[in-house]
Design a protein around this nucleic acid. Structure first.
Lengths: 148, 148
DNA sequence: GTACCGTCTGTAGCGACTACAGATGAAAGG
DNA sequence: CCTTTCATCTGTAGTCGCTACAGACGGTAC
């Protein structure tokens, strides 16, 4: 079976178009060994297979969901070694989910603070701005303890 | 009035303790000219004034609220030039607030997707993982259009 | 004097790309 | 075969906002 399935494979531009991943980013993924090195044409251009495409799509989707490169690498390593266990993957997912929830909590705090500040402001041509004043006020409750 | 108000000024460590800003970060702010260069002792150590302290606290508070360095620089430049107008500051604040809201929206989308994926998963020792399968499925609706 | 901390400069690293510059490769039309 | 035009190549440096060293000096208390 020395037969090639995909006539000539995908050049990098096709990979980029199919997945929405920037060409430079694809090369970057190769450099950091997240994507395996593809074959080259006689002239030295990369030629990807359908497996490369699937892998890149996996990476894209995972990145969109906010997984970090090392988390993705860990998942792909499991896939490569056929050692995927649902439990491990679930743990990684919920851990990541927790960090997303944490970020949401943090951003909501900022949202409340900023909304409050914006509401204070008459937003005219006035030079005395309550927003600036708020920012100049240190509002850390344990500052008193540290100050001597 | 060649009289110095603050006996000997604050060394950088005191600035750090008072504001909670890392020493290295304070020096970084000086390098990028967000903080002005302070006087030095005979030996070359930095000596900050109370004004420096106020400014650093402003920066800290603004960073905590998620403002970028360049936004903070813009606000401080207005303060320095006594050209603060409430309208401008309000505009910057609401712009930033919008970007915070946008981030929250985005993270909530991730949260929903991840929660759904985690729920699919039996999380046992099984090698067939619905999470991995979902990640391998391209689910971009306009992929069909591009693919030829 | 000496112990010991604080501070100094300068540089390199993080994560995840992105943006060039300058040189080839590939394919289509004449 | 030649030209044009696009695609792709390598390599390096920049982004943001710090953080982490290394190795040398400053300042103060005993």
């Amino acid at each position: 079976m020395p037969q090639i399935t995909n006539a000539r494979g995908y050049p990098i531009g096709a990979m980029s178009r199919e997945t929405g991943v920037n060409i430079e980013t694809i090369r970057y993924y190769e450099r950091i060994e997240l994507m395996p090195k593809p074959d080259r044409t006689a002239g030295g251009n990369r030629q990807y297979t359908h497996d490369h495409l699937k892998r890149l799509a996996f990476i894209k989707r995972s990145r969109e969901l906010g997984f970090g490169i090392e988390e993705i690498r860990a998942m792909l390593t499991m896939v490569d070694q056929d050692s995927v266990t649902c439990g491990e993957v679930h743990a990684m997912t919920t851990e990541h989910l927790d960090s997303v929830k944490e970020k949401i909590r943090h951003l909501k705090k900022l949202e409340r603070a900023l909304t409050g500040m914006a509401a204070e402001c008459a937003k005219g041509d006035v030079p005395d701005c309550p927003i600036i004043e708020t920012l100049f006020e240190a509002c850390n409750p344990d500052r008193n303890k540290t100050a001597r």
